[in-house]
Design a protein around this nucleic acid. Structure first.
Lengths: 161, 161
DNA sequence: ATGAAAAGTGAGTAATCACTTACAAGTATA
DNA sequence: TATACTTGTAAGTGATTACTCACTTTTCAT
């Protein structure tokens, strides 16, 4: 994960992975069949942890609170998961096939929340939340921004406090 | 640009580039010294075009209009430049060194605009605009979203219409 | 028309790539 | 303790990689 996140999938050799892990190169292929299999294992591992956070949002019944929680997600990224999310965002731009299903349910729950609140265009409102989450995640993962006041500012603009 | 944008820098071979361009592989190295040099040439070419759009924002003196124009930028991406921006956003996650200088001036002009408008925290407000631009660009380049009403919705939340 | 520079080619190069295979060491159960 | 299975290694494999070099063709001012 460390190497894929910093050098990219194609930029990382299986030899380098073996060295970093302190094992022989052959062992990688015994365990994961091929390089692609290793990537899939990493993604599955990460998404399993990530889907916990998504559920936490979806399970909130009060629509305003649900949207609030959704926006706060990128602000609460566990620094230990930083490399995973960097890898996920990097993959976004290269591999359309790796857009996992948890995201679909997440979006649907946002649309539902805005419908409950009687917004004119729930779909567009949900897209805007996704836009903000994507943008905040980008800034947090790549730069070191003053996240504290930013969350408040966003919630203000969206009348969510 | 086409190949780098779709397959990534490491995922694209110089042989493939030569074939796509209809020239010999050797010619690439005559013109650009090495593969990295070709990437730099592509980035310079694209940034030259992009800086025109940034100037258009910076040169607007009226602060509200300047911010409005800034937010509208990702909505007005020339489809011909789509591949370039995909490449730029993909590189973002792999190569920190390719964060070009025009962006710095652009951000400064946003902070200045919010200062003029008397906002409590112009830095955070500017960051939020960057967040939105990043997020919108991501959505527009990767998915095909209903951009029309999204822009209006954003301007509404930020009292910019 | 001439000649030198620029543009272009194609067959190389060593290095690196993902991956395989033959074999050894460890581990658990009967 | 014997056996079967898993875990692990080291030395390969052919293919592909970025890049070079000797050479030919084109361009263009004189």
């Amino acid at each position: 994960m460390k190497l894929f996140a910093s050098l990219g999938f194609d930029g990382t050799s299986t030899k380098a992975i073996a060295k970093e892990a302190g094992v022989s190169e052959g062992l990688i292929f015994k365990h994961f069949k091929n390089k692609e299999g290793l990537l899939e294992a990493i993604i599955n591992y990460g998404m399993e942890k990530a889907s916990v956070y998504f559920s936490e949002v979806i399970l909130i019944s009060e629509p305003k609170k649900r949207i609030k929680k959704a926006i706060s997600l990128p602000f609460t990224i566990d620094p230990n998961d930083n490399q995973f999310w960097k890898l996920m965002y990097a993959l976004k731009w290269q591999r359309a096939e790796y857009q996992p299903s948890p995201f679909v349910l997440f979006r649907a729950s946002l649309v539902d929340a805005f419908e409950q609140l009687g917004y004119d265009n729930p779909e567009v409102e949900a897209t805007l939340i996704e836009v903000i989450i994507d943008g905040v995640a980008t800034q947090i993962l790549l730069k070191n921004i003053d996240a504290g006041t930013l969350l408040e500012t966003i919630l203000n603009k969206h009348s969510l406090n």
